[in-house]
Amino acid sequence: MKKRTDHADRLGEAMAARDALASALTAAGIQLPAMDVRRAWAGEAPYALVHLGVCSAPVAHALAEALGRGAAR
């Protein structure tokens, strides 16, 4: 049963990370169209993945600009 808890914990961690990233992007005026969480373990891989999906060139530029502003702080 421990494996189920570990997988649930990993999935929960990835979902929390996705939600935090979505909130930060929203605060910066950016919305990615298809953020999701996907399982990465094909056995015992230690994580789940936050899938950011695809975005248009203008959204990619806005994301780059927001990251640049944050890095400049």
Rank of each mutant, 00 (worst) to 15 (best):
A28W: 09
D36K: 14
A28F: 04
A24P: 01
A20Y: 10
A64Y: 07
A57M: 15
A16T: 14
V54C: 11
C55L: 11
C55Y: 07
G43I: 04
A66G: 02
C55D: 08
E65Q: 08
A17Q: 02
W41H: 10
L21P: 12
A60D: 02
P46N: 01
A22F: 05
A20W: 03
G29R: 01
E13P: 02
A66H: 09
P58N: 09
A40R: 13
V37P: 00
R10Y: 06
A8S: 09
A60T: 04
L67H: 10
S56T: 10
A57N: 06
A57R: 07
P58K: 08
T26A: 12
A34V: 11
R69Q: 08
M1K: 02
L32H: 04
E65C: 14
A20F: 04
G12V: 01
A8F: 14
G68C: 05
W41C: 07
L21R: 01
A48H: 12
R69K: 09
G29V: 11
G12F: 03
D9P: 00
A60C: 02
R38D: 00
A71G: 08
H7A: 13
A24W: 11
E13C: 10
S23G: 15
T5C: 09
A72R: 11
R38P: 00
K2T: 08
E65S: 10
R38V: 13
V54E: 04
R69D: 13
A64C: 11
E13Q: 02
A24N: 02
D36P: 07
V59W: 02
L49V: 08
A17T: 14
L21I: 15
M35H: 01
V59N: 03
G43M: 00
A24Y: 00
R38N: 00
A40Q: 14
L52I: 13
M15F: 05
G43Q: 00
A45P: 01
T26R: 13
A8Q: 14
L52P: 00
G29M: 06
R38E: 00
A16P: 07
A42M: 07
A17I: 04
R73Y: 03
A60V: 05
R38Q: 04
G29W: 07
T26H: 08
E65T: 12
T5R: 12
A22L: 12
A24R: 09
L67A: 11
E65F: 08
A57G: 04
R39N: 14
